[in-house]
C-alpha cells in the first residue's frame, strides 16, 4: 500500500497548488480588467491634448520647445525600467530586464554617464544581485499607478533635463499592443519626438475647425502643453506596464493550473493502477493459499 499512499499524497498537494494558481489567475483577471479600464479612460486626456496641439499648429504657432530639440551634448542619460513588484508572471520581468540591461550597455557607450532608475521590487533585486548601481528606485507602483506619483518622477526628470544634467531619457517597459500581444520596448521620452502622442489618438482627434481665441497666446499654451504631454506619456508607460503585468500573470497562472490538471489526471491513473495491482496481488495470494490447502 506504500506506493499508492505516496501517490495519493502527491496528488493532494498538487490539488492544493492548483487551487492557489487558479485563485491567482482569477485575481489577475479581475485586476487586468481594472487596469485596462484605467488605461482606456486615460486615453480621453491624450486625445484632447493631441487635438489641442493640432489646433495650435493650425493657428500658426511654431512648434518648438527646449524639450523637443535633439541635443548635441552627450553628457548624461537616464534609463527607467518598469518591472513588477511581484513575480509569478512568467517571463514578464526577465524579458523587460533583458531589454533594459541591453539598452543600458549601449547608452553607457554613447554617453559619459548613465543613471539607471528602476521601478518594481523585481527589478531592484535584479540590480542588487548584479551589483548594478541605481540612481533611484520606486516600489510604490502596483496594479493602479497614480498620476500624482508619476508626476513626481516626471517633474524630477524634467528639472534634471532642463538643468542639463541629463540629455536623454528613455523608458523600458512592456508596451500594450493588444490583449494577446505585448512586447518589451525602449522608448525615448526626452527629447520628445512628436507631440501628437499616438498616431491613432492624433487621427481620431478630428478638430471641428473653429477659429479659436488663445489666452494668453498660442506660444504660451504650447510651452505648457509640451511638459504636460511628457508627463502624460510617462503615465501611459506605467499604465501599459500595469496592464501587461496582469496579462502576463494571468497567462502564467492559467498555464500552471492546466499543468496541475494534467498532472493530477496522470497521477490518478497511476494511483488507480497501483491500487488495482495490489488488489490483484492479494487475490492471487488468497487463491494460491487456498489451493495449497486443498492440495
Amino acid at each position: 500500500m506504500a506506493k499508492a499512499r505516496a501517490l495519493d499524497k502527491r496528488r493532494k498537494s498538487i490539488r492544493n497548488i492548483r487551487k492557489i494558481t487558479r485563485t491567482m489567475e482569477l485575481v489577475a483577471t479581475a485586476q487586468f480588467r481594472r487596469a485596462m479600464e484605467r488605461a482606456v479612460s486615460a486615453g480621453a486626456y491624450t486625445q484632447r491634448i493631441a487635438a489641442m496641439v493640432a489646433d495650435l499648429a493650425r493657428a500658426g504657432a511654431s512648434v518648438s520647445h527646449p524639450l523637443l530639440e535633439e541635443r548635441q551634448a552627450k553628457n548624461g542619460a537616464a534609463l527607467l525600467i518598469l518591472t513588477a513588484n511581484r513575480g509569478m508572471c512568467g517571463g514578464y520581468n526577465s524579458s523587460i530586464l533583458r531589454k533594459g540591461h541591453h539598452r543600458a550597455d549601449e547608452l553607457k557607450g554613447e554617453y559619459e554617464n548613465l543613471r539607471l532608475l528602476i521601478s518594481g521590487k523585481r527589478g531592484i533585486s535584479y540590480a542588487k544581485d548584479r551589483k548594478i548601481e541605481l540612481a533611484a528606485t520606486y516600489d510604490q507602483f502596483n496594479d493602479k499607478p497614480q498620476y500624482d506619483e508619476v508626476v513626481k518622477i516626471a517633474d524630477h526628470i524634467l528639472s534634471e533635463y532642463l538643468a542639463g544634467n541629463i540629455d536623454r531619457f528613455e523608458v523600458a517597459y512592456m508596451k500594450f499592443i493588444s490583449v494577446s500581444k505585448q512586447t518589451p520596448v525602449v522608448e525615448t521620452l526626452l527629447p520628445l519626438s512628436e507631440l501628437a502622442a499616438d498616431d491613432e489618438a492624433g487621427k481620431s482627434a478630428e478638430s471641428n475647425g473653429a477659429e479659436y481665441e488663445f489666452l494668453p497666446s498660442p506660444e504660451s499654451i504650447l510651452e505648457e502643453v509640451v511638459p504636460t504631454a511628457f508627463r502624460v506619456k510617462l503615465f501611459k508607460c506605467f499604465l501599459d506596464a500595469a496592464v501587461g503585468e496582469q496579462i502576463a500573470r494571468r497567462v502564467a497562472m492559467k498555464a500552471a493550473t492546466d499543468n496541475a490538471d494534467s498532472m493530477i489526471s496522470i497521477l490518478t491513473t497511476t494511483y488507480n493502477r497501483a491500487r488495482q495491482g495490489q488488489i490483484t496481488n492479494e487475490i492471487i495470494e488468497v487463491v494460491s493459499g487456498a489451493s495449497a490447502l486443498q492440495g
Binding site: D55, L56, A210, F214, L215, P216, S220, I221, E224
Partner: peptide, 9 residues
C-alpha cells in the same frame, strides 16, 4: 451659453 471658441491656460 454661446461663448466664442477659446483655448486658454
Amino acid at each position: 451659453k454661446g461663448h466664442t471658441p477659446v483655448v486658454a491656460r
